[in-house]
């Protein structure tokens, strides 16, 4: 018994199809974000940018066209306002489908 079907093992997802390559969009809490810009400079996938909101304040957001938030939470680690967090992993259809994953969780004490 295999976890991936024969068909899945033969299917390599199209890199340009967001249905086949599901990259998570991190959520920025605009109330909390103070526009310090640090998340945008440390994000390894270059998916975050600053913009000016309706009140003329700088805030972070995910770029419209992006390929590849890797759910590393570098943005969360550096954000001193607690405004941003990845809570889902990337996933793919076919050969690269994620297996045996549970929910995101902070370090648990046992």
């Amino acid at each position: 018994m295999a976890l991936l079907s024969k068909q899945e093992r033969r299917h390599f997802p199209d890199w340009d199809d967001s249905e086949q390559c599901k990259f998570h969009r991190v959520a920025v809490d605009l109330e909390k974000c103070d526009g310090c810009k640090l998340c945008t400079i440390v994000c390894p996938s270059n998916v975050l940018e600053l913009f000016v909101d309706g009140n003329g304040k700088k805030k972070a957001r995910v770029k419209e066209n992006h390929r590849g938030c890797i759910s590393c939470n570098n943005c969360y680690a550096i954000c001193e306002s607690g405004a941003i967090e990845a809570s889902h992993h990337y996933d793919f259809v076919g050969y690269y489908r994620q297996l045996g994953r549970g929910e995101f969780s902070k370090p648990r004490i046992f």
Binding site: L38, V42, Y76, A77, S87, G100, F104, S105
Partner: peptide
């Protein structure tokens, strides 16, 4: 490092 990337982060759990 630039900044203080010290907050403990969430990661997925594994079977």
């Amino acid at each position: 490092p630039v900044g203080n990337p010290t907050h403990l982060i969430a990661r997925e759990t594994h079977e």
